[in-house]
Amino acid sequence: MDTATLPDHRTAADPVALVPFAPAHLPGALALSREMSWPYRLEDWDFALRVGRGFALERDGAVIGTAAWFPDEADHATIGMIIVAGAAQGRGYGTRLVEALLGAAGPRTLLLNSTAEGRALYARYGFQPAGTVRQHQGPYRHRGAAAPDPDLRAMALGDLGAIAALDRAATGFARRPLLERLIAAGEGRVLLRDGAPAAYAITRPFGRGHVIGPVVAGSPDEARRLIAASLARLDGQFVRIDVPEGAGLSPWLTGNGLPQVGDALTMVRGALPPAGPARLFALANQSFH
């Protein structure tokens, strides 16, 4: 769908316009996320809409709804940031936003992480359950010094090609541009095997503190080593990490002082690309996975 030809559903009784998301919408989007108790900062909204594309619902100059999608370099995309103001819910605005996303994405395979309230809406458009994401977070307190891991080092600019290949093997998505922005916004670590990057983790500022993710590794042990090294640099700070249920990291994270505080249902529309043997152990964000 060309955003220049978005359907205009405005009437005298309901003068709500669906428009492409623009920088002017950022303060209104931030207010919506605060209403939903999402911990986004203005910088987080700006980052998301620079790596993706979005829509806003406007009424009398006020933002009453948002939605975004994040295409990869192939035929897949994720969708998220779907919010409708509480006072405007129940009037079909969520449906308008989802239909705009589907029109923009075209035939791509689509992935999303849904709240309990949104599952029925997405199911109506052919999204099927594909897993669960566990959200862990809290103030982190480092529990004593650990011996340096000789196989870990800071991510270097020359690692990007290997990181992008590992990420595609784990997710099936071709998302090098997203990885470039994530690395630029934070810092990364790689785990070496035979001198070459075999796993990676990225940490960046987000919300109330920092988020660790994505984390891609060949085994839970490798993922724990990368996460432990990232946590060691975040002593005394608020940390969030979103992990797939099948990653098996939830008990370990809870034991390290990051309790599970919520979950989301991963849903897919279309056929997910094959992935492996590397696996995704932590998400960059529930909206762009």
Results as ranks from 00 to 15, higher is better:
Gly276Asn: 05
Ala130Tyr: 03
Val243Pro: 00
Leu152Gln: 04
Ala229Thr: 09
Arg91Lys: 03
Val133Lys: 00
Asp263Asn: 12
Pro177Arg: 02
Asp159His: 13
Ala199Leu: 07
Pro150Lys: 02
Pro107Thr: 09
Leu166His: 00
Ala162Val: 10
Ala85Glu: 04
Ala174Pro: 02
Gly138Arg: 01
Leu258Phe: 06
Ala154Ser: 12
Ala185Met: 10
Ala162Ile: 09
Leu97Met: 14
Pro273His: 01
Phe55Leu: 08
Gly270Cys: 07
Ala247His: 01
Ala146His: 14
Ala146Gln: 11
Gly65Asn: 05
Glu43Tyr: 08
Ala13Arg: 13
Glu180Pro: 02
Asp235Met: 12
Ile212His: 13
Val133Arg: 00
Arg96Thr: 01
Gly172Ala: 04
Ala278Trp: 02
Val261Trp: 04
Ser33Lys: 02
Tyr200Ala: 06
Arg240Gly: 13
Thr5His: 11
His136Thr: 13
Val63Gln: 05
Trp38Val: 11
Gln286Tyr: 10
Ala29Val: 02
Ala87Ile: 11
Pro197Leu: 10
Arg91Asp: 08
Leu253Gln: 14
Leu258Trp: 02
Ser219His: 07
Ala162Cys: 08
Leu182His: 09
Met267Cys: 12
Leu182Val: 15
Pro251Arg: 09
Thr203Cys: 07
Met155Ser: 14
Leu234Asn: 05
Leu111Ser: 02
Ala232Gly: 12
Arg10Ser: 11
Gly144Ile: 06
Pro205Ala: 03
Val268His: 10
Glu35Val: 04
Pro251Asn: 12
Pro39Trp: 11
Thr109Met: 06
Ala247Asp: 07
Pro129Ile: 10
Tyr122Thr: 12
Glu245Trp: 14
Val239Ile: 11
Ala146Val: 14
Ala184Ser: 08
Ala77Phe: 09
Leu32Lys: 07
Thr254Asp: 15
Glu73His: 06
Phe70Ser: 06
Arg50Asp: 13
Ala169Val: 03
Thr95His: 07
Tyr140Ile: 07
Arg91Ala: 14
Ala223Gly: 09
Phe238Cys: 07
Gly131Thr: 05
Pro273Asn: 00
Phe206Asp: 03
Leu30Ser: 05
Leu6His: 08
Ala185Ser: 09
Gly257His: 08
Thr132Ile: 10
Phe173Tyr: 14
Leu234Arg: 05
Glu245Gln: 13
Gly209Ala: 10
His136Met: 02
Ala4Cys: 05
Gly80His: 01
Ala48Gly: 11
Gly131Cys: 08
Leu234Met: 06
Pro177Tyr: 09
Leu111His: 03
Phe173Asn: 01
Val190Ile: 10
Gly86His: 10
Ala120Glu: 15
Val215Tyr: 02
Arg59Pro: 15
Leu18Gly: 00
Gln137Asp: 08
Glu187Trp: 14
Ala196Asp: 03
Pro197Ile: 08
Phe47Glu: 00
Pro177Phe: 09
Ala282Pro: 00
Leu152Asp: 01
Thr3Asn: 06
Ser250Phe: 10
His136Leu: 04
Leu6Phe: 15
Pro259Ala: 10
Glu43Gln: 13
Leu283Arg: 01
Ala217Trp: 07
Phe281Glu: 07
Arg134Ser: 07
Trp252Arg: 15
Leu283Gly: 03
Asp60Cys: 05
Tyr140Lys: 01
Pro205Asp: 02
Asp151Tyr: 11
Leu249Phe: 06
Arg181Ile: 05
